[in-house]
Amino acid sequence: MRMSLNTVTVKEKWGLAECIEGCARHGIPGISPWRDVLGAMGVEHAARQIRDAGLTVTGLCRGGMFPANDQAGRDAAIEDNRRAIAEAHAIGAKCLVVLGGGLPPGSKDLPAAREMLREGLAKILPDARAAGVTLALEPLHPMTCADRSVLSTLGQALDLCDELGEGTGIALDVYHVWWDPDLADQIARTAGRIAGFHVCDWKVPTTDTVFDRGIPGEGVIDIPAIRRMVEAQGYDSFAEVEILSKHWWQQDPDEVLALLKQRHVDAV
């Protein structure tokens, strides 16, 4: 698999312009921006710089986050997702990564939050189809269910893809799915539907369940085994390195990219 850099990996030291230049200098052929750095640089400017650098945009992070306490909040999320789809189209992203969103503040109604996710996806799907942007549903580890994503398993995400059809796909992040005892069977359902494959590692001990990801080879995830599973289902695109880490954010980005390139060979 070719390597792609998710810009959050070096977010404390580099903006999008530096990430584009750094990928080109290190010979990393793919990039996946987050919307904050894309907006700071400007969508048109960023699209031009990415094209000039010869990079493939493996995804745009992120859409989704539909659950809200009232209709106004849900409508605002839908409009923001429509903007995200337009941004993904403008930079030529292979997909828009979509998170489920957590429970609305004060709510304990998990089924209702999951229904808000389903309804939100259905409303933006015509926009995604028209733009040719795949909505890549990314299930997150169950520990994030309350505050980040009510979409917790690959099986749930695939069920939504089955229901919604064309224009949906999967962003499979090993950090969030490696633990699932049903993982092999669920990956067997993904044929043709994996839009993004994200790699990092689960450290032991983990000091922060969101911001202590390891670089590949630093933890306990058998990344090559999962890679082989997705390749067996026809996925032959990029491995996107996405590391949210308070430790790695403080290191020199050039050193981080050089290390990631080596680990891409050794541990992915």
Rank of each mutant, 00 (worst) to 15 (best):
L38M: 06
Q71K: 13
T56M: 09
A84C: 07
G219H: 08
L96V: 13
P29T: 10
G132S: 08
K94E: 14
D52Y: 02
R228V: 03
V177S: 00
D162W: 05
N69W: 04
Q233R: 08
G15E: 02
K13W: 01
R82K: 12
G132L: 07
G30I: 11
T153A: 06
Q250T: 13
E240L: 14
H264N: 12
A112R: 14
G217I: 14
A267D: 15
H26Y: 09
M65T: 10
P126E: 10
G73A: 11
L38S: 01
E242M: 11
A93T: 10
G167P: 05
V98W: 07
A122Y: 08
G196M: 15
I187N: 07
H264D: 11
R263F: 13
A112G: 13
L5G: 04
V43A: 04
R148W: 13
K246A: 08
R118C: 02
D254F: 05
T190Q: 13
R114K: 14
F211E: 07
E79Q: 10
T190L: 09
E87S: 06
A184R: 12
L244G: 10
E21P: 04
L125P: 07
W178D: 06
A146R: 11
R25C: 00
A68F: 05
L183W: 02
R129D: 04
F66G: 05
V43N: 00
V133D: 00
D162Y: 06
F197C: 11
G92S: 09
Q250P: 05
A88D: 01
G132V: 08
V37M: 00
S4E: 07
A188H: 12
E231C: 09
I28T: 09
V199Q: 06
D147S: 12
T134C: 14
A258C: 10
A53V: 10
Y235I: 09
E255D: 14
D52N: 09
E242C: 13
E18S: 09
A136R: 00
I170Y: 01
F197H: 14
R82L: 08
F197R: 13
D236G: 08
S107F: 07
F197D: 04
D52M: 06
G167W: 06
L60N: 12
L154E: 00
